[in-house]
Design a protein around this nucleic acid. Structure first.
Lengths: 123, 123, 123, 123
DNA sequence: GTGGTCTAGACCACG
DNA sequence: GTGGTCTAGACCACC
């Protein structure tokens, strides 16, 4: 479910956060589903438990999951998050597109890319 | 010409690199133009000369500028870099779009954004 | 493992890069082997940690190693690099041989040298 | 006769020295030929006269030319230099070949290169 | 004046 | 503990 890429320059805890976020946002993890325990996931990925703990804490802080003492961590049901996340992603996209424009990439080239992405079937 | 944003999470030297790259790629800095000297730019931006030095070194390594001891740093004339850089940027865009798709952003929303960006007049 | 020659005109960081490159290219350092930490190597060689850091950064940039924050630097497994490096070295050799020819060194003299080098047993 | 390559990382004075050395060693400049004057060459190459002066001084020091006050600089006739220079170049070649061997280049590959170089007709 | 290397020491983020 | 960035200041080579 979670894969760590050590060649990825982002810190491990961030990779884990991102992975759970997309799993939750696209519905693969339904509300109230229990996440793997901190310790079991740490062993499975052979990384430090503190790293998992940090990822879960931040996921809780940003509202993606809730934690119950002695029981575990669970996916939160909060529709507003979906919108908030979409807004954030679109904002990043805007900056990226601005940059594309600055270095001389044409609108045509970009729309072609967009079409290409959305024509692929989901894996 | 160069602005440092201390709120930006990226390191200073990287901000400088990116700024010069776009200035070179969009033609604002023509081939063989001399860049500000390491020390003068350091003073102008009130940062350490080593930080500028590092930015210039990496710009030279990646082929955007060439440096001559005792004379200064100059914009390199290398057309192939433009294409290489465009390809790289489009590749990043592709990953970004893939992510947008994963969290449920529609193609329509994106094309609207693209149009919006390209309708603005250049400043 | 690493020796610094202060009589060598090349900068220290470059000597370190070259040394690790050959160690990786000839297989003495296998993929995913951990390199000495920045600080420990600095102490061992009695040089500044920044100098090691620079060497490691450039080794990472050129694909010989990968670095993970909080964990260390490791040898990357990338076969294509071996070929790329061989091509680069042979290219330099070609220029060198061209120069030999220009100043009147004969083919016979060179082939004798080549044989001499390759007859020695590996140490 | 002399071309300066600003993309070459070597200092300008060294490029000039090397160029005159090969011209002298391969006989293009015969003994007692007068070299261009410091000032005229400086203007021709649009570089600082001090740089030319330095090149000529070093050429004189190493015995390739001699200078006559008020008259100019002339090619020296000294056969022993040829041998000395050949020895030096062959020594550099030996180190280079050693390096080739270390990174796994075979003797066969090298002899092919050598043949290739010497088969070309002089330009 | 220019670029380039190195040192010493600080601070931050990550695990 | 690990890597990464930045500063301040020194010294060298080149033009």
């Amino acid at each position: 479910m979670i894969i760590i890429d050590y060649n990825d320059k982002r810190p491990i805890y961030e990779q884990i956060i991102d992975r759970f976020q997309t799993l939750i946002l696209n519905g693969a993890l339904e509300p109230d589903t229990q996440l793997p325990s901190v310790r079991s996931l740490a062993i499975e990925l052979s990384i430090n438990a503190n790293t998992i703990q940090r990822a879960y804490s931040e996921l809780e802080r940003s509202g993606f999951i809730y934690s119950v003492k002695g029981r575990g961590n669970f996916v939160r049901a909060d529709e507003s998050l979906v919108e908030k996340q979409k807004a954030k992603t679109l904002n990043e996209l805007q900056e990226h597109l601005q940059h594309c424009k600055e270095i001389g990439i044409t609108q045509k080239e970009i729309t072609e890319y967009v079409s290409k992405i959305f024509m692929e079937v989901d894996k």
